[in-house]
Design a binder for these strands. Structure first.
Lengths: 338, 338
DNA sequence: AGGTGCCAGGTAAGCGCTTTCCCGCCCAGA
DNA sequence: TCTGGGCGGGAAAGCGCTTACCTGGCACCT
């Protein structure tokens, strides 16, 4: 691999001069030397060693992102927002998938810290696990203590900058809508119990139902993984236990789609017999049949805001941006009564 | 940020010793010193500076991946495969989205080279652009000349290791199936002209049709972006120009889903009036209505194989793994005749 | 002509780590 | 008691780059 000295030697200048022309230092260099250096760079196909550069300037480079799984549409939308802002500012992203393993998340924080990333962004639901939170906060604090920046998306654990989708309010809207449509017997396909997203959404839903004097018995809530197939399985269990359900609220769209698919396989018509509600409004919610009534979260926007927070130091006081959720009525919930 | 010297000082040992215990060198260290060092590491929350490490050993670290867009399911599936193998081998991935911009792709190659990645994986269709290919090959050659490894997925340009989905054969299967089902008037929603994927698939399709004595006039092929909305628009154009079409082949699933959505909005029933075919078999092909008949590509497998190739040096001779495509019959193509 | 500034360019000191080489110690053998 | 070998530990030389600091030469002034 050609080094800066190779370039300098070939151009007949000192490494200092070569360095100056290569990264456009403020120090002026005569056109002639500049030309020779550029020539040498081209001939040797020289590319500066990024590690050496980062070591020498003590300037931090890329931004680290920890998500549960980029191939999950929820996260790919967020990532798209992150990317957009990062790219605008000429930052490279290092994306790490924790696959919902808290330990891996911890490891990645260390790893990113070691890579001197300018900021770490944690996206996706947090966990109900005091020990984990303690460890995570410890590591993040150590990172921030040395000038690193941290922003989280949809997590309560961290006390610094955060972008928070209003899960609770969104779920409340969902509950309101279900009551408005006259549903009494409601089943809920929830996400993993350990995730705060699950409990936030469940809380909002319960609040709305309570306002209408309805309760949500424990056996009407099934906890499952946040994916399609688990959603289908949970729906099956719900239906088996309580055949009279008129509505199923899945706490994310993937699971709602699983529910739809299961209902179809059992020849239960949606929305005539059972209404289905999702959460997140992923792009494909428009493409399933019937189209999915759901709560829209501005995912791309959330990513963009988080990156903006992470890259802008601010005055040190924690900034929390709450983004509103919105009800999107489509066909899976049927027409309004009357 | 705590450094190795800080740790050494605190433990009362030399940096050399500290380094040895921290990364388990072969050189033995007494238990007592080891203990003191570990203690200091914990107290200082020390994390080695990855850049300094990479500089000092001249060992290359992470693997660079260049895709068109991770939030496109096609690439997120591939990425999942890449991740799996990379994680197994303890490698970090640097994922770069080119957003289908060849220039950005070129930039990313340089950038990854500068970051001393152990390998570069280029995923996604190549371009029909001689100048671009020349430049790209130049940069890749420079990288490989210094020991870097390169693997491509679905690209003809590169002469080294490659994983190739059999697009042409897949499209041929599609064409066969369309003929078998008796379609005469076929419209094609193709991807961007500049992509080799588009031309490969078109070629395979034409071959199959030709075997049955059918031609595909130029005005029956509409070129669009590989996304849902472009697919819908192209379908509209196709239908307007030729209302008698009985089948629409979209060259990827996203576009096919766009086509489905447009047909629904025009109250054209699928498959009764028009059959729709996709390509790739993305997960959501099962969830749209009607479910999508498509050509399955083993995307995750492709990613995994590519990473395996990239991480295993081999004997230097180029290895090309061709992965078979497979027809998946679902509802959008209707029942077989008779 | 000698002095004063400037400015292009070079010299060298790190950035934080790994690793080679060397040193001093201890124990076995004579 | 002396020597040789082995072994744990430290000193120091880089890895490839940036940058503060210095130098030498020129133009301009007095």
């Amino acid at each position: 691999m050609a080094t800066l000295s190779d370039v300098a030697r070939r151009a007949g200048v000192s490494p200092a001069t070569a360095s100056r022309v290569i990264n456009g230092s403020s120090k002026p260099v005569t056109d002639e030397l500049r030309e020779r250096v550029l020539q040498a760079v081209a001939e040797l196909q020289y590319v500066p060693n990024a590690h050496a550069q980062l070591l020498a300037r003590s300037h931090r480079g890329p931004v680290g992102v920890i998500v549960h799984d980029v191939s999950d549409p929820y996260f790919s939308e967020i990532t798209r927002g992150l990317q957009r802002v990062a790219t605008d500012q000429g930052r490279l992203l290092m994306i790490c998938n924790s696959y919902r393993d808290p330990d891996r998340e911890l490891e990645y924080v260390e790893l990113l810290r070691g890579h001197q990333v300018a900021a770490i962004i944690l996206a996706g639901s947090g966990y109900h696990d005091a020990e984990f939170i303690r460890l995570l906060n410890g590591k993040l604090a150590a990172y921030e203590a040395t000038g690193g920046r941290v922003a989280v998306i949809g997590r309560h654990e961290h006390s610094g900058d955060a972008v928070m989708p209003d899960n609770r309010r969104g779920a409340w809207l969902l509950g309101q809508e279900m009551c408005r449509l006259g549903h009494e017997r409601i089943g809920v396909v929830a996400g993993p119990r350990v995730l705060t997203t699950t409990t936030d959404r469940l809380t909002g839903l319960r609040e709305a139902l309570a306002e209408h004097g309805r309760r949500l018995p424990a056996d009407r809530v099934r906890y499952a993984e946040f994916d399609r197939d688990s959603g289908a399985a949970a729906t099956a269990a719900l239906l088996d236990a309580e055949p009279g359900l008129t509505a199923i609220a899945a706490l994310n769209d993937s699971m709602a789609i699983g529910a739809l698919s299961l209902l179809r396989s059992r020849a239960v018509s949606v929305p005539e017999q059972v209404s289905v509600f999702g959460f997140d409004d992923m792009p494909l919610a428009r493409d399933v049949t019937p189209t999915l009534t759901t709560i829209r979260l501005p995912l791309v926007e959330m990513g963009a805001r988080a990156m903006a927070l992470a890259l802008d130091a601010g005055d040190g006081s924690p900034r929390v941006e709450s983004l509103a959720a919105e009800l999107v009525r489509r066909d899976s919930s049927g027409p309004p009564p009357g």
